[in-house]
Design a protein around this nucleic acid. Sequence first.
DNA 1: ACATGTATGCGCGTTCCGCGCAATAGCTCT
DNA 2: AGAGCTATTGCGCGGAACGCGCATACATGT
Lengths: 271, 271
Amino acid sequence: MTTATGSRERRDQIVRLATETGLASVDELSRMFGVTASTIRRDLARLTAEGRLARTYGGAIAVTAHPESSLRQRIGEDFHAKQAIARWAATQIQAGETILLDAGSTVGALAHELRHADLLTVATTGLTALLELADVETVHVECLGGTLRPLSQGFVGPLTEAALERMTFDRVFLGTDGINADGGICEADLRQTRLKELMARRATQVYVLAHAAKLNHSPFHAWARLPLPWTLVTDAHADPDFLDTLRTHGIHVVVATHQPPGAADRPATDG
Amino acid sequence: MTTATGSRERRDQIVRLATETGLASVDELSRMFGVTASTIRRDLARLTAEGRLARTYGGAIAVTAHPESSLRQRIGEDFHAKQAIARWAATQIQAGETILLDAGSTVGALAHELRHADLLTVATTGLTALLELADVETVHVECLGGTLRPLSQGFVGPLTEAALERMTFDRVFLGTDGINADGGICEADLRQTRLKELMARRATQVYVLAHAAKLNHSPFHAWARLPLPWTLVTDAHADPDFLDTLRTHGIHVVVATHQPPGAADRPATDG
DNA sequence: ACATGTATGCGCGTTCCGCGCAATAGCTCT
DNA sequence: AGAGCTATTGCGCGGAACGCGCATACATGT
């Protein structure tokens, strides 16, 4: 343990961590460095005064320009669950495949994971995925077009459906607003349900990305039915009984496990 | 006090204030808008989830992680010329029309001017225009889709052309990489020239937006020919002799005048 | 008229913050 | 070596800010 210049070194590392990932939490940092939250708070106060960070409720945020567009995602809801789901989904994709990405933040997180992929053709109906991959030269991006829905930032309508009829895909990754116990996919309107059913029919492998908060949840009243089999990818907070019910309907279920932040460089001794 | 669309308007103003000053406090905002801190917190939570702000302890901070397209424009080349051109182009558009916007920064500037338009249908082949209008609820946005070209951030290819065949437009606004003395339109490749010719054929009124630096300039070797008559919109730095040559070819030429700095934000009449 | 959805204010328990105090470690000066 | 100074850390406490649930008011659509 280096405690001589420990405090200075620690503060530098805090800045480095925060600028890399965009965010850092007091709790996380205190565990990572093996000091109390008070110490971290003092560090953050000092770094804030120096203008190297900005303080948030429970942590800090980087103030310098971020190379990645991940910050918008990171400050969104249920980020860790979505990231875990996206990372598992990314592992399923083979080089050279042609895949289809839906709209939505979870699928957007998947697009983010694909920024370093090689030899991939990605078609999408979502603005989020489009933006994530717009500047990636190694990924061929096709936009399906259509009417832009301001809320979901996705494309729907006749243009989208016509474009879909001209392509097929190795895998499609769908988002959703909710899933019920029968494996029904809940959407805001019928144009979206029809589109999702059409998307599912154009792909060999069908995945639905939905974190635990979406399970057994019906915010709207338009429902899509996907042709079996398809794979639900969710996170560790999902209710096991609900997942079993889905399995009895012939749906594959995958639970993507979080990796706790900082688990990689965990120090040796710990209680 | 307008309470009809009050909440949405207030949130937009919060974002504006935060991005202008970099920082905004809950207490300050609640006093400014005459609402309780709870309401402001709800606003900030929502804006945070939307990725438009980041939360701090006691307030919010502007997040410019994704460089806003508007910002990117302002720091881009020849911004004032492009803005003058875009503002003149915006005056040509009547309420209720259906217009087509090309890719490119000048056309993107036009899209920015249309953010406060009412009752408009805008179709586009460019990511820049798409982003400018994505959150504007009063404008119906259609994306034509296609293959995304990373450099120009525009869509080209069979999907784009197929989508174009399903629509016609009152006006089309085209960008370009260069214009020669015959009125030829220079583009990076033949897919783009074919697309621009097709776009021009689908609209009643055809405009080409090109600031002075693009005139008599041939960076590439693919050329498009537009059906006469069409209108070139350029800025005050254009060479008058060159413009006269274009006029002899039957091209309408409009010179958009710069607004001297400071006169721009003169609100004229409050209504 | 009724139901529905959104927006708001208020009260509550919880979380997090900042400050003061005490203890430890490293360093300098006599 | 011993005294004293400074920097850093842990702990506890009062207070500030937060999120959540509930009730109310307004606008909208059936």
